[in-house]
C-alpha cells in the first residue's frame, strides 16, 4: 500500500456558480476525503481561491491537481507542503465554566494558547484561537479531557505561498497577452 500524506491544495478559479461542485467532484471520483475546505475571494478581481486539505497518496494528488486544472473555469491548481506556505486556521470553542468552579485552571489554559475571549456568561465562555492546525487540535484535546467542551468549530486551513513569485498573477498576465495577440490576428 502506498503511504498517504496530508496535502494542501490551492485552487484559483473564475467566480461562477457551480465551480465548487466541479472541484469537489474530482475528489469524489477518486474517493478521497476532503479534510478541510475554504473558499473565499482572492487578491485578484473576480478570482476565487480555494484552500483544500486532503490526505491521499502521491499518485492520487497528481491526478487530482491535473483534473482540477482541466476544469474549464479553473485558472490554476497546485499542491504545497508546509514548507512552501504560511498557513493558519481559526477555531471557536464554547466552554462550560462550571467545571472550573473556584480554580484558576481555565485562565492558565487560555493564556497558554493565547486565545481571545469572545463572550462570557454565567454558564459558559466562548473563546477563539487563530493558529496552526496543531495548536487548535491541542487546545480542543485539552478541553475535551476536562469534559467542558460544548461546541467546537474550525475554519479549515487557509494559506498563502511563501514564494517571491506570484504565479497566478503572472499566468493571468500571460493569458492577457494571448488575448491581445488573438484579437490582433482576427
Amino acid at each position: 500500500m502506498e503511504t498517504e500524506s496530508l496535502y494542501t491544495i490551492i485552487v484559483h478559479s473564475e467566480n461562477f456558480a457551480g465551480i465548487l461542485n466541479q472541484v469537489a467532484a474530482v475528489f469524489t471520483r477518486l474517493q478521497v476525503n476532503i479534510e478541510s475546505l475554504n473558499v473565499s475571494a482572492s487578491s485578484l478581481p473576480n478570482v476565487h481561491k480555494f484552500t483544500i486539505c486532503c490526505r491521499t497518496t502521491e499518485k492520487n494528488i497528481d491526478k487530482i491537481i491535473k483534473q482540477i486544472v482541466k476544469k474549464l473555469d479553473v485558472i490554476s491548481a497546485a499542491c504545497y507542503t508546509d514548507r512552501d506556505i504560511f498557513s493558519s486556521e481559526i477555531a471557536m470553542y464554547k466552554i462550560s465554566t462550571h467545571v472550573f468552579d473556584g480554580s484558576d485552571d481555565l485562565n492558565v489554559i487560555l493564556r497558554k494558547y493565547n486565545t481571545r475571549v469572545v463572550e462570557v456568561t454565567s454558564d459558559y465562555i466562548v473563546v477563539e484561537l487563530a493558529g496552526s492546525s496543531d495548536e487548535i487540535t491541542a487546545l480542543r484535546d485539552e478541553f475535551q479531557n476536562l469534559g467542558c467542551i460544548r461546541q467546537f468549530v474550525r475554519s479549515g486551513k487557509i494559506a498563502v505561498t511563501a514564494s517571491n513569485i506570484e504565479k497566478v498573477s503572472e499566468w493571468l498576465d500571460r493569458r492577457e497577452k494571448v488575448r491581445t495577440e488573438r484579437s490582433r490576428i482576427l
Binding site: 478559479s13 473564475e14 474549464l72 473555469d73 479553473v74 485558472i75 493571468l172 500571460r174 493569458r175 492577457e176 494571448v178 488575448r179 488573438r182 484579437s183 482576427l186
Partner: peptide, 12 residues
C-alpha cells in the same frame, strides 16, 4: 468567443 482566460486551448 475565441478566448477564455481560464482555459488554455493552445498551450505554449
Amino acid at each position: 468567443v475565441e478566448f477564455i482566460r481560464s482555459y488554455d486551448d493552445d498551450p505554449e
